[in-house]
Nucleic acid binder design. Structure first.
Length: 418
RNA sequence: GUGAGUGUAGCUCAGCUGGUUAGAGCAUCUGACUGUGGCUCAGAGGGUCGGGGGUUCGAAUCCCCUCACUCACCCCA
């Protein structure tokens, strides 16, 4: 085979596409009720958009970006996530002048140059939502409960919601140095990745899954103890509002985001039935990002759902692919022309109609009718053309009914039966 | 970037320690059944055995290299 999809990219074909449409339609429904509007953004941005927001030392920026030079010599990057481009657009179009909260959602492909794995692709699809302009933890709770509703309405069960607060620019430095102080004298007990993290981003040591690291970090100062009064109050209120909305969650103080722009609330949804790549959605608050993009200081919060992560969880509910309402089986050239005309007329009336374009034996035409799942079949031969009367066959019951070869009467019969 | 596993028909896979024209099931097409599908039966088409090299009288099978895919690590949605 000469050409194939690039590594980590995939074609999405029928019937799988119906699962995607089901998810997208379900999400759109709920977004509408929460006042979110769709926004469509380019798949590439100036590379700086990502470096400045996601963080120079993050794994994404360090090794996972599809970055190249365009013909004008500019460095461009295929978006590895949706929030930074969104904030760029938010500032560029002065969307902060609309009444807060401004609420947007998007769905589309993201790109990360990683080694593919189960449920992890280089081009992957996210459904994301962003709400801007409100600092109140009620909004955090609203967002998380909306996420729960979306995932639930799509048909997902057994999900685990984890939340934490990672502080803000006022209290995080204090925590960071307290953590480094605690880890400093046992640094040689950690894996080599964690030793590297110690300087770059010590918070991520808390998220390491190596058993010796888990053990060595026992007794480390909990992040939640270092929150400033504002962050602490915010987190406390968030929990209260989640309780009011009956969203069940667990507090995971070791939840660490790979992106640098998060402040205060961070959350992640995971499914135990997925194996190693178990995160299906994640998000958090980013209160200083608009500022950094040159806009007026504006708080924001959002999340993204990983399409490829939720699809295997609901694939069982795949419905049978439908077949046409009617199939014409013409015998002979004259009949084929008549069927050709009627096919067009009936389609214009809103029916899904097909005709066999190849003149094969009636037997094989009927086989095909069965194979494609046609609901009704009309055989058009010399007799029918002569008398103007046909039999329409219901392929499920096998019954045949007489009818005149006339559009309105055919519609009536098909509509009644289907 | 690191490690492990797998590559044989459109799909799922047999093919034992090297030995004739490389097989099965499903799918496709045709016929049995001049104008009525599903079931059954018969037949047909479809393969550079991932690619290259080596060992050998002889390689899908053994060895080396390479490519692709998969899974895991890392990290993340």
């Amino acid at each position: 085979m000469k050409y194939k999809t690039l590594k980590g990219l995939q074609d999405i074909l029928p019937p799988d596409i119906s699962v995607w449409q089901h998810i997208e339609a379900g999400a759109r429904d709920i977004f509408k009720n929460y006042g979110f509007q769709e926004i469509r953004l380019p798949v590439m941005e100036s590379t700086d958009v990502f470096i400045r927001s996601i963080g120079e030392t993050s794994d994404i920026v360090e090794k996972e970006m599809y970055t190249f030079q365009d013909k004008g010599g500019r460095s461009v990057t295929l978006r590895p996530e949706g929030t930074a481009p969104f904030v760029r657009a938010y500032v560029e179009h002065h969307l902060y002048n609309n009444p807060a909260p401004q609420k947007y959602y998007y769905m589309g492909p993201m790109f990360r140059y990683e080694r593919p794995q189960a449920f992890r692709y280089r081009q992957f699809y996210q459904i994301g939502a962003e709400a801007m302009g409100i600092d109140d933890p009620k909004l955090d709770a609203e967002i998380i409960s909306m996420l729960a509703l979306i995932l639930g309405s799509i048909g997902l069960v057994g999900l685990n919601f984890e939340i934490t607060s990672i502080g803000c620019k006022n209290c995080r430095p204090g925590y960071r140095s307290a953590l480094k102080k605690f880890l400093n004298d046992k640094i040689d007990k950690f894996c080599k990745d964690c030793q590297r993290r110690f300087d770059i981003n010590p918070l991520r040591i808390l998220d390491c899954k190596v058993p010796s690291c888990i053990e060595s970090r026992q007794g480390s100062p909990p992040v939640l103890d270092f929150l400033c009064t504002e962050c602490e109050g915010h987190f406390k209120s968030l929990k209260k509002y989640l309780d009011i909305l009956s969203v069940s969650y667990t507090i995971n103080p070791n939840l660490v985001r790979g992106l640098d722009y998060y402040t205060k609330t961070a959350f992640e949804v995971s499914s135990e039935s997925l194996g190693s790549q178990k995160a299906v959605a994640a998000g958090g608050r980013y209160d200083s990002m608009v500022d950094e993009f040159g806009g007026p200081s504006t708080p924001g919060i959002g999340f993204a759902i990983g399409m490829e992560r939720i699809i295997p969880l609901i694939k069982d509910s795949l419905s049978e692919p439908a077949g046409p309402d009617l199939l014409f089986c013409p015998l002979g050239d004259e009949a084929a022309v008549k069927a050709f005309l009627l096919t067009g007329q009936l389609r214009a009336e809103g029916l899904w109609v097909e005709m066999n374009l190849e003149s094969t034996s009636l037997r094989s035409q009927m086989r095909k009718a069965n194979r494609i799942g046609a609901k009704n079949v009309i055989v058009l031969g010399e007799d029918e053309l002569k008398t103007g009367e046909i039999s329409i066959k219901d392929m499920v019951s096998g019954e045949q009914n007489k009818s005149l070869l006339e559009v309105n009467q055919l519609i009536k019969i098909i509509r009644k039966e289907t």
